[in-house]
Simulated scan of single mutants.
Amino acid sequence: MNSNAQPIKLFLVVAFSCTNLLVSLTPVLAKPTLDSSRSDAYGGLRLRPQTKTTLAQVTTFNQPPIPPGPAPGGRVRGGAKRGPAGCKITKLDLTALVPFTQEANSVVNVWGQTTVEHPSWFFYVPYTKDLPYIVEFVLQEDPDSKDSKEIYRKAIALPDKPGVIRVSLPTNTPALAVDKQYRWFFTINCDKEKNSPPTYVEGVIKRVNLSAETVKELETAEPRKRYAIYAQKGIWYEALTTLAELRQKNPQDAALQAEWLNLLRSIRLDDVAAESILPVTP
């Protein structure tokens, strides 16, 4: 009996050793994450593949349905015909950082909510100040009317380098009214003579009120929590603005970088998520 037990014991030792060897050789698969050590001073992102992520669960943006009535329409990407006097060809187009939907009939609706009287908009601009382009931001009342009243117009200076810029409605302009929609335009004329069509983006913004309970929660919440509340309530403009300000104050924060990537990915703007948020210019 002892003569039979010895070969069996030897077999089990060899089998166990082989199993451990196979386990040790099994590759570990990791999801890509963000490399905070390679972000620039203005918050540009770089992707670092094949590294483990230890970031907290990112927040989900709950996009509200388009309100009843005429569809807002709009344009989230610039794209004019480029002739001899047209816009310089760039890797990425002019892009509005705003939610949009594309219907079955290919109609694009660009629409988002705000809770403040004087909100901010963010745009990815691929052109720089060395180009003689004319840039304007315009805000109108009554977006569905042919006689829309213009309430704000501002010439925009092109940045030093391509990136995401912020345009804010000044406090000395009329406040946005609650439950009223407004149409905005961001236009770049690349031809001073205006013989070529401009490249532009446009959409509709609506101011809404939050519940008293949510307002109270926001009053005591720190900025990261406020961002999460706005995102969960479908308030795009304050969610984006809060997160952009956090990223500019903490450019090396990998968790904030992941939130930014996730937020823009949720509205299908992954391609501009890695672009720098540029300092605000007067």
Score class of each variant (00 low, 15 high):
5 A>T: 13
6 Q>N: 10
18 C>Y: 08
19 T>Y: 14
25 L>N: 08
26 T>K: 11
32 P>E: 11
46 R>T: 13
47 L>V: 15
49 P>I: 10
49 P>K: 01
51 T>I: 15
51 T>E: 15
52 K>N: 09
54 T>Y: 15
62 N>I: 04
62 N>M: 04
65 P>W: 08
79 G>M: 06
83 G>C: 10
83 G>I: 10
84 P>H: 10
85 A>S: 14
85 A>W: 06
95 T>S: 02
99 P>R: 00
100 F>G: 02
100 F>C: 02
102 Q>G: 06
103 E>L: 09
106 S>H: 07
109 N>I: 01
110 V>Q: 00
112 G>P: 06
116 V>I: 14
123 F>D: 02
123 F>C: 00
123 F>P: 00
127 Y>S: 00
129 K>L: 08
129 K>C: 08
130 D>S: 12
133 Y>M: 02
134 I>N: 11
134 I>C: 06
134 I>E: 14
140 Q>N: 13
140 Q>G: 04
143 P>C: 03
146 K>A: 15
148 S>I: 10
156 I>H: 09
157 A>D: 11
161 K>M: 12
162 P>S: 07
162 P>N: 04
164 V>C: 02
167 V>C: 04
167 V>L: 09
168 S>C: 05
172 N>C: 08
177 A>N: 08
190 C>P: 07
192 K>T: 09
194 K>Q: 14
195 N>F: 10
202 E>S: 15
204 V>M: 02
209 N>F: 00
209 N>H: 02
212 A>L: 10
216 K>Q: 09
219 E>R: 14
220 T>E: 07
222 E>Y: 11
224 R>N: 11
238 E>S: 09
241 T>Y: 13
241 T>D: 15
249 K>S: 12
254 A>Y: 06
255 A>P: 04
263 L>H: 02
266 S>T: 11
267 I>Q: 13
271 D>E: 12
272 V>A: 00
272 V>P: 00
272 V>F: 03
276 S>Y: 03
278 L>P: 09
279 P>M: 11
280 V>N: 04
280 V>K: 07
